[in-house]
């Protein structure tokens, strides 16, 4: 066990945990932030996507020792409201397990587009969300939701 200090959704946290404990488990079990879901646990499905210092990652593949001093953003974090609204309005969710990951990934994608001066279009959306699997196979509405979020200027 060792102490790990990092920021989650703007709040400073100190967690005592095995250094190789998955960030996913720290978020869900130690910090009671259960918005982040576990899908495959192997980095294939994207359900557990969170941002570390603004970059999307699979939290099942990140040991807590690697977020020391970092800023972690989960689906509960600030700045995701407009994307959540877009998914609500477009019906971009069915059973809901993949939804938090899709929302975080959409936010990360829109941030990247803005940073790199790229126009978010459908091809880009499909590419950005390729690592987020939906087993209800509702991809049509998921892409529509991401594009609706983009159309609103992707504002935070």
């Amino acid at each position: 066990m060792s102490e790990h200090e990092f920021e989650v959704n703007g709040v400073r946290r100190t967690v005592s945990a095995d250094p190789l404990r998955r960030l996913l488990d720290v978020l869900r079990e130690d910090l009671a932030l259960t918005g982040t879901k576990e899908g495959c646990g192997e980095g294939e499905c994207g359900a557990c996507t969170v941002m570390i210092d603004g970059e999307a990652v699979n939290s099942c593949l990140v040991p807590v020792c690697q977020v020391q001093g970092a800023r972690v953003t989960t689906v509960e974090g600030a700045g995701l409201e407009s994307v959540q609204e877009a998914f609500l309005e477009e019906g971009g969710a069915q059973c809901g397990i993949c939804t938090p990951g899709l929302i975080v990934m959409t936010r990360a994608w829109l941030d990247t587009c803005e940073r790199e001066g790229r126009v978010p279009d459908e091809a880009e959306a499909r590419r950005a969300l390729a690592g987020n699997l939906c087993r209800c196979t509702g991809y049509g509405k998921v892409i529509a939701s991401a594009l609706a979020a983009a159309a609103e200027g992707g504002e935070r």
């Binding site: 980095g43 994207g46 996507t49 970059e55 999307a56 990652v57 699979n58 593949l61 990140v62 990934m105 990360a108 994608w109 950005a128 390729a130 690592g131 987020n132």
Partner: peptide, 9 residues
């Protein structure tokens, strides 16, 4: 190599 989440790591 993989999805964005993988490429970032």
């Amino acid at each position: 190599v993989g999805a964005e989440q993988i490429k970032n790591r």
